[in-house]
Amino acid sequence: MKVVLRNPLRELDIEGDASVKDVLRRLDIIPETVLVIRQGELLLKTDLVADSDTIELRPVISGGAG
């Protein structure tokens, strides 16, 4: 799967299917700090992400714009 990260904008690949929870754990990201977005919809921690999917991990912590 393709994972889009922000601040700064970048992409990385993870092989195979995985749950959202597993993806975040592998990347060492605390679930409270991001939204996981696939095609404009939010994913829950139990949702499965397919190898062919693109997901965005959008940070929600802000210090500037609010």
Binding site: R6, G40, L42, R58, P59, V60, S62, G63, A65, G66
Partner: peptide
């Protein structure tokens, strides 16, 4: 703040996603 971000995404409200470039060193974050 995760909920205001989710609200915007689910409502289709486009907002500034990029962090302020001057925020480095911000203790609050």
């Amino acid at each position: 703040e995760r909920e205001t971000a989710a609200y915007c995404v689910l409502k289709g409200i486009e907002y500034e996603v990029e962090e302020c470039p001057m925020v480095a060193g911000n203790t609050g974050i």
